[in-house]
Every structure is written in C-alpha cells, then in structure tokens.
C-alpha cells in the first residue's frame, strides 16, 4: 500500500505540474514573489516527485515478482497518495508557506476550496478502500 501511495504522490505532483503549470499556464514557471527558500523547496519537491515515480514503479514490479501484491491494497494506496498530496499541497504549500497560488489575478478562495475538497474526497476514497482491503485480507 505504501508503495502505491508513493506512486500516487508522484502522479498527483506530476499532474499538478503538467496540467496546471504547463497546459493551463495558471501559475508560472517562476514566480517573482517567491523567496529563495521557496525556489529551493520547489526544486526539491520536483526532483523528489520524479524519483518517487521511478522508485515507485520498480518497487511495484518487485511486489508483483514476489506475488506479494494485494490489488485492493494497491488501489487504496494510489488514492491515499493522490489525496494526501493534494491536501498537503493545498494547505501547506498554498496557504501556510504561500509558495504559490493556484491562479493569479482572480479571487483565489473558490479555487482553494475546490482544490482541498477534491483532495479530501480522494483521501476519503483511499481510506474506505484501505479499510475494505484490510477486512478482506483478514477474512481471507
């Protein structure tokens, strides 16, 4: 499950970067407002996201090879990762550290609310799946 959560985090970070940064161009490659510490954390996060994706897929392959992969746990892990990262990004990055905002030049509140609710929903789906997987595992 942890392995798939890693993949989930990587995917969500990748989606965030690709969809919102590149396709929509909502927030930019470089925000003039950010301090150097923001730049550093962004670079670290970006690199960690790439490494997490590569490591996640190899760990996944390793689990399959050992026949240790539980599909229901894996699904739960992906959702936990997706939701966890989304919420973390929404709360810590956007609000607490104020690294960047989702969109500039408009009232950001509805976007923030939507972003965090979407993250919460994904996280809840992950939790439900995890509990169900655990039950099935025990009864099996």
């Amino acid at each position: 499950m942890a392995v798939c959560a890693l993949i989930g985090v990587g995917i969500m970070a990748g989606v965030d970067e690709i969809v919102f940064h590149q396709i929509l161009g909502w927030h930019h490659f470089y925000d003039r407002s950010v301090a150097s510490i923001g730049l550093l954390s962004d670079g670290l996060l970006h690199t960690a996201e790439l490494l997490a994706l590569v490591a996640g897929f190899f760990l996944f392959a390793d689990l399959r090879r050992r026949d240790a992969l539980s599909r229901s746990h894996a699904r739960a892990g992906v959702f936990l990762g997706l939701g966890g990262f989304q919420l973390f990004d929404g709360i810590v990055d956007h609000k607490v550290l104020r690294l960047h905002q989702i969109r500039y030049g408009v009232d950001v509140t509805p976007y923030d609310v939507l972003w965090n609710i979407a993250g919460l929903v994904l996280l809840l789906i992950g939790m439900v799946l995890a509990v169900r997987a655990q039950r099935r595992h025990r009864s099996a």
Partner: peptide
C-alpha cells in the same frame, strides 16, 4: 546514491529557474 541524485537534481532545478530571471 539516491540522496545525492535528489540533492543534485534539486540544485540543478534551482539554478535553472534562477537563470530564467
């Protein structure tokens, strides 16, 4: 090796972004 790759990747990304401006 993984830690070094992470650090150097981050440094490379930060330097690239700073060159942008």
């Amino acid at each position: 090796r993984g830690g070094t790759l992470l650090a150097i990747g981050a440094a490379h990304a930060v330097l690239a972004k700073s060159l942008y401006v």
